[in-house]
């Protein structure tokens, strides 16, 4: 059976990536920002897997698997930092984290 064209997969992947990117830029809670980062990485994963099926060969799937492991470790560090900040009663709103002014 023939599935949908690879363009559709790429479209969904790009949509996920863009949603995640907007989330990182616009949302205030660091938890949601981390979640949006995951969405960006998973968008890229979807594209990798779709292309892997298109071209044959496992490189894209291996890439996607290692990205999952990396994403998990990144989120562990992120959540650890958020917990440490919550313990110190630092405000959990990225707009108010302005001790360092950019």
């Amino acid at each position: 059976m023939k599935g949908p064209d690879v363009t559709w997969y790429l479209g969904v992947a790009a949509f996920m990536f863009a949603t995640g990117a907007l989330g990182v830029l616009l949302r205030r809670s660091p938890l949601i920002v981390l979640l949006s980062l995951e969405l960006m990485l998973n968008g890229a994963n979807l594209a990798l897997i779709a292309f892997s099926r298109l071209h044959g060969g496992g490189a894209g799937q291996i890439f996607a698997l290692s990205v999952m492991a990396v994403a998990a470790s990144e989120v562990v560090v992120g959540l650890g930092l958020i917990v440490a900040m919550a313990r110190r009663n630092l405000t959990l709103d990225v707009d108010k984290l302005t001790w360092l002014r950019g």
Partner: peptide, 16 residues
């Protein structure tokens, strides 16, 4: 801590 979180968010954004 703030620097760590900022670096993580922006660094993760760049990596993505």
């Amino acid at each position: 801590l703030e620097a760590g979180l900022k670096y993580l968010v922006v660094g993760g954004f760049g990596s993505a």
